[in-house]
Nucleic acid binder design. Structure first.
Lengths: 218, 218
DNA sequence: CTCTTACGCTACGCCTCGTAGCGTAACTGC
DNA sequence: GCAGTTACGCTACGAGGCGTAGCGTAAGAG
């Protein structure tokens, strides 16, 4: 747990021919390891996942894992982060209400996958005592998802559905708030309440977010 | 992990003189174990917490732990659940807005404690693969907190701030939604974004929840 | 005083962790 | 080609946690 991968950002194979000498890291091994990690997560879950097992599945020596990642948490973050990169665009559905529903359903679809379900919570739990890990999660997963909120809000402002903020600072605070509300609600619904994030729930949630408790037609 | 504590609800000492024969479980040992668990959580976090260590802190044999709890997750749920029982009333602050802020600040205060921070997320993560554990979390923690939402909503309806629901089913769905939004947002803010749930944020959140995105004065 | 259950203690086999050491493979610069 | 450098696979290892078994003893019920 004390080893930090020496060259470049961890998980990325050393750049070829960039002045770096010696045998380069195998990019294929990287893919195999991250894939094996996701596979093991599905079958075993976070608790019973062992690095020995991942190494065996990937057809790689256990020592190679430790040469690249400091521990289980770091490996799993990278393995799961790749999944969150799939849908980072937000199709314009014509209204704020529809855009919210779209982003919620997409996010929920990610959380439904067995490899993300367990992994995300476990890694977040671990990050409460590990600042470096939390930073890694933010840059690899959270901040990218937050981007979707910024896009959707900007569109709504152009449509005239939302007012423009007075100051950049207030805008940032507001965006953070909305992100916490959306992401938090979906995660809580899916993982704590363990109820489906389906069409009906998503519509109710978007209604609530747009209109609030007070402005509710019932 | 295959052992289920035989008599009565786990974690509670056998009722004295209730037809049960033999030596009763020590209630004092129970307190010592749960206390030691919380203490160990603060110092070590979920990942490095070991049952051997807890037993040593509690001045109890390791075997006693396994006689009462099936594993680490179950023990930690009980240890943390006791903390959530402290504030289960909701003082009437005069308005829906104020009541929301009150419940958010209380919930946040619980999450600020180092023993709950890590433990809650870790246990939820584990529960995604263990239905019995999830049920235990619900009854010991989640459902009790949800009660606060029901109380606050009822008050708001009596004040005329919120309309009454048409059907009991719709009311239940709506309450579940609100609970997921509040609890999810606070947890996400505190643990994922790792930003303080302070007075300012709480006010913004309550504004958003009551008035919605659209009805925002800015 | 017997029956029943809980407790403390010791010991154990199994597994995972994370590291060290070694010989070999791959790629770079001369 | 050859030396230098880095990554890899393999084996082995000590440390430590897990969960259980067995035993003798303590604490209540009838």
């Amino acid at each position: 747990m004390t080893y930090a991968p020496p060259p470049g950002p961890p998980g990325r194979p050393g750049q070829r021919g960039q002045g770096r000498t010696g045998r380069p890291r195998s990019a294929e091994a990287d893919r195999a390891i991250l894939g094996a990690t996701r596979e093991a997560l599905v079958e075993l879950g976070w608790g019973k996942l062992t690095l020995s097992d991942v190494a065996a599945r990937a057809g790689v020596a256990k020592t190679t894992l430790y040469r690249r990642w400091a521990g289980k948490s770091e490996l799993v973050v990278d393995a799961v982060a790749a999944l969150f990169d799939e849908h980072l665009d937000l199709p314009d559905l014509g209204s704020l209400q529809a855009d919210i529903q779209g982003v919620v359903l997409r996010f929920a679809a990610l959380l439904e996958r067995p490899e993300t379900k367990t992994a995300l919570m476990a890694v977040v739990a671990e990050s409460t005592r590990d600042d470096a890990l939390r930073a890694r999660i933010r840059s690899a997963i959270v901040d990218r998802q937050k981007q979707l909120v910024l896009i959707g809000r900007e569109r709504a402002q152009e449509r005239g559905e939302l007012p423009y903020e007075e100051s950049p600072a207030a805008a940032a605070r507001h965006a953070d708030l909305i992100f916490d509300v959306i992401a938090g609600a979906v995660v809580h619904r899916a993982l704590v309440s363990a109820e489906p994030v389906d069409e009906a729930w998503t519509r109710s949630f978007a209604d609530l977010l747009v209109g609030g408790l007070a402005g509710r037609p019932v």
